[in-house]
C-alpha cells in the first residue's frame, strides 16, 4: 500500500460533556479510540495517516477539565486549560512563575491558545524516525533507527536509552516536576494520583508510551501543592529557533535559599532522556550548600554523570551541564 501523508482518514467524533461519558466511550472503543485535547499532537498523527483511530473523543466540551482554581495552599489546573491561560493566569504567575514561564515558551501564540496543559504533558516524542511512521521499537517494531551507526540523532537522548533514544518534548513537564505537582488520572477504575516525575515513563517500562496513561485513562487535573510557591525559580529552554521549536535541552529549578544557603532544591531537565529527568543527585548535592559558583559548577558536573551521547549529540553534555549551573546560580544571566 502506498504511503500518503495527507488528509485525515474518516473517524467518528464524540464530544462528551462529562468525564464519565468520555471514559465510557474510551472503554467502548478501546484501542481504536483516541483522546483529543487541543489536538496539536493529534493532527500530525492523523494527517500523516499513521494513527487511524475510529473514534475520536474530544474533551473540549467537558467544563470540569478547564480552569485554574486554588486548593488548600496550592492550585488545581484542569488538564484542558490552554497554555496561554496557564502562562498568563495571575495565580500561576505570582506563585508558580516557573510554570507560567515554561508554558509561555511552548511553540507559538496560536499553539498556546489552543494547546492544553494536559496535552503538552502527554504529547508523544518528536523523534523523526518514529514520526515518519517507521516501524521502530516505539511503533511496535524491533529496531531503533535513530541510534544506528550513521543515524541523524542530534536531537536525541543522552540518558535513559532503552532501545529507544527519543526524548520527551514537553516544556511544562520539568516545571511541574520541580514544583512537585501531582497528576490526577481518571479511568473506569476510578481516580488515581501520580507524582509528576512518575507520570512519565521510559522505554524500559513501556516503549510505546511516554506516560502512565493507558487506553481508557484521562489526565484530568494537575495539582500543584504550595510547597514551592514563591521559591526561587529558573527556567530555560535552549532551542534552534526562538519560536516553534522543541527544547534541545531545557531546565527547571525551584530553590529555597536562606542566608545564601540552599535549603531545599528541586531540579529537572528535559530533552536529554525519553522522559523528563529529575536530578536527585544534584538536589542532594546542593542542599545545604551555599548558593555560589562553586556549588553550581559541582552540580553541573554531577548532572551529566553517566550520560552516554550518541553520534551527533555530544553537545548536549556541555549544554546540560551549563544549564544546570545556570539554574543554580543566584543571578541568572
Amino acid at each position: 500500500m502506498a504511503v500518503i501523508r495527507d488528509m485525515i482518514p474518516a473517524f467518528d467524533l464524540f464530544q462528551p460533556t462529562s468525564i464519565e461519558d468520555a471514559i465510557d466511550l474510551l472503554d467502548q472503543y478501546g484501542d481504536d479510540s483516541w483522546v483529543f485535547a487541543g489536538g496539536m499532537d493529534s493532527f500530525d498523527w492523523m494527517k500523516d495517516r499513521i494513527k487511524r483511530p475510529t473514534a475520536v473523543v474530544d474533551l473540549g466540551n467537558i467544563p470540569e477539565l478547564k480552569g485554574i482554581t486554588s486548593s488548600d495552599d496550592g492550585l488545581e489546573i484542569g488538564a484542558m486549560t490552554t497554555l496561554t491561560e496557564v502562562a498568563s493566569n495571575s495565580d500561576v504567575t505570582s506563585r508558580f512563575g516557573l510554570l507560567s514561564q515554561a508554558a509561555g515558551l511552548v511553540a507559538t501564540p496560536q499553539i498556546r491558545n489552543q494547546g492544553t496543559l494536559g496535552g503538552n504533558l502527554s504529547q508523544d516524542t518528536r523523534c523523526w524516525y518514529y514520526r515518519a511512521g517507521w516501524p521502530c521499537y516505539r511503533a511496535g517494531g524491533n529496531i531503533c533507527y535513530a541510534s544506528a551507526p550513521l543515524a541523524m540523532n542530534r536531537e536525541h537522548c543522552i540518558f535513559g536509552a532503552d532501545r529507544c533514544v527519543a526524548v520527551n518534548p514537553s516544556d511544562t513537564a520539568t516545571a511541574l516536576i520541580a514544583l512537585d505537582a501531582k497528576m490526577v488520572v481518571h479511568s473506569s477504575k476510578g481516580e488515581r494520583e501520580v507524582d509528576a516525575e512518575d507520570y512519565f515513563i521510559g522505554p524500559g517500562i513501556d516503549i510505546t508510551r511516554m506516560t502512565v496513561l493507558e487506553t481508557g485513562d484521562i489526565l484530568t487535573t494537575i495539582r500543584i501543592p504550595g510547597t514551592w510557591a514563591g521559591a526561587q525559580f529558573y527556567f530555560e529552554k535552549v532551542e534552534d529557533r526562538k519560536s516553534w521549536d522543541f527544547a534541545l535541552v531545557s531546565v527547571a529549578s525551584a530553590l529555597v535559599v536562606n542566608n545564601g544557603r540552599i535549603e531545599r532544591a528541586r531540579i529537572a531537565v528535559n530533552g536529554v532522556a525519553p522522559y523528563p529527568m529529575r536530578l536527585d543527585a544534584v538536589e542532594a548535592a546542593v542542599t545545604g550548600k551555599p548558593q555560589n559558583e562553586e556549588t553550581a559548577e559541582a552540580a553541573g558536573d554531577i548532572a551529566i554523570r553517566g550520560a552516554s551521547p550518541l553520534r551527533h549529540n555530544d553537545y548536549k553534555l556541555p549544554l546540560m551541564k551549563n544549564l544546570v549551573r545556570r539554574a543554580l546560580r543566584e543571578q541568572a544571566p
Binding site: 524491533n142 529496531i143 531503533c144 533507527y145 541510534s147 544506528a148 551507526p149 536509552a161 532503552d162 532501545r163 552516554s308
Partner: peptide, 27 residues
C-alpha cells in the same frame, strides 16, 4: 544477533548488520 540492536557494553548498536528480511527471520 539481536543484542547487536540494543545498547550493551560490548559493541555499538548496529541494526543494519543484516538486511530487513534477514532480521525478520531472526525475530
Amino acid at each position: 544477533l539481536m543484542m547487536v540492536r540494543v545498547d550493551t557494553p560490548f559493541w555499538a548498536r548496529n541494526p543494519y548488520l543484516l538486511s530487513d528480511q534477514m532480521w525478520g527471520i531472526v525475530y
